[in-house]
């Protein structure tokens, strides 16, 4: 079995499945490539013919509007042919297996799959299965990884705070179920950020999270002190009341980011959120729409990052 599915022996990117194990120069190359797609004057994202004639399949086994749309826009800006498939509603319900679906699409001349799936490891499974000329981008698998989200988060942080080495970043919320948290932690550590913190109640922290290179806090007052960046995670509806948390109200009181709690952080703190937001649960509207928020920039940069990843993968042949 291949020990590294996403890198060739020479260290070139073959698929993008996870941030874990990506060398920092590979990450930097993606960030720099993304930068070139953004017009320095207008901040608009340019259209280029790099993927002209290539078929990119958005293979979404789990609902998503934002991620799917930004991948679609990114592929179109690269002049690719984009086909969107929401599998929940079609072949899976007819009993077709994941790999059967993939095989069928390969026969339709797919050049690249962008995969979102509710099970950890789904993108790895597909990457292991397809022929070497077909590229796979993980657009989120279960609780495991969401590498393009982490890259756009890095891009956003670097855009506003170019010196990464001195930054303290806190990730707040449901770390246990979050692929964004895992990928962000790997990305931030790969870039040599001074300190990565996670803040959550014990019920929302996976065992041994500190082994990923984070400092663990359970109290916002301590965890937010002097941080330069706060990444707020989305709390899924089904986890707001039950055996993980008693109620959204209590969660908001302890962990919701309000203007008051924001004052504990560095005066120039950046506030980020991967979206979609639950206002009044994990973040207060005053903060989400306030001067520290860079949440909408994240979305725009997400397009450039996804263009960069696609173009790098397609260039590598």
């Amino acid at each position: 079995m291949q020990t590294n599915l996403q890198l060739t022996k020479e260290g070139r990117l073959r698929h993008l499945l996870t941030i874990e194990g990506l060398p920092s120069d590979t990450i930097l190359n993606i960030l720099d490539t993304a930068n070139r797609f953004i017009d320095p004057k207008t901040h608009e994202i340019q259209k280029v013919p790099l993927l002209s004639g290539k078929a990119v399949f958005n293979l979404f086994f789990e609902n998503s509007t934002r991620t799917r749309t930004t991948f679609e826009i990114a592929a179109k800006r690269l002049s690719a042919d984009v086909i969107n498939l929401n599998i929940n509603t079609s072949s899976q319900s007819k009993g077709e297996t994941l790999l059967d679906t993939v095989d069928n699409l390969v026969s339709m001349q797919a050049a690249m799959f962008i995969v979102r799936h509710n099970e950890s490891g789904a993108a790895h499974l597909i990457a292991r299965h397809v022929a070497p000329h077909i590229k796979v981008i993980n657009a989120g698998d279960g609780r495991h990884a969401h590498p393009t989200q982490a890259l756009l988060d890095l891009f956003t942080i670097r855009y506003f705070r170019p010196d990464l080495s001195r930054l303290r970043v806190a990730i707040v919320g449901d770390i246990l179920h979050s692929r964004v948290a895992r990928s962000d932690i790997h990305a931030l550590n790969a870039m040599g950020i001074a300190e990565v913190r996670v803040i959550a109640p014990y019920t929302l922290l996976p065992k041994g999270i500190e082994l990923l290179g984070v400092k663990v806090f359970h109290d916002m007052a301590k965890g937010l002190r002097d941080v330069d960046v706060i990444i707020i995670l989305r709390l899924q509806n089904e986890r707001m009341s039950g055996s993980l948390l008693p109620s959204p109200q209590e969660y908001f009181k302890s962990y919701g980011l309000t203007s008051e709690k924001l004052r504990l952080a560095h005066p120039d703190v950046l506030v980020m959120h991967p979206g979609p937001m639950n206002r009044g649960i994990e973040i207060d509207s005053a903060v989400a729409d306030g001067p520290h928020s860079v949440i909408l920039s994240q979305v725009t940069f997400g397009i450039a990052i996804r263009m960069a990843v696609m173009s790098i993968l397609m260039k590598e042949d």
């Binding site: 874990e20 895992r182 996976p206 082994l211 990923l212």
Partner: peptide
């Protein structure tokens, strides 16, 4: 197993 690997891979764990 509820340990380092399940945490890294994001797999539902059995303690």
């Amino acid at each position: 197993h509820d340990g380092e690997i399940a945490t890294r891979l994001g797999l539902p764990a059995i303690p």
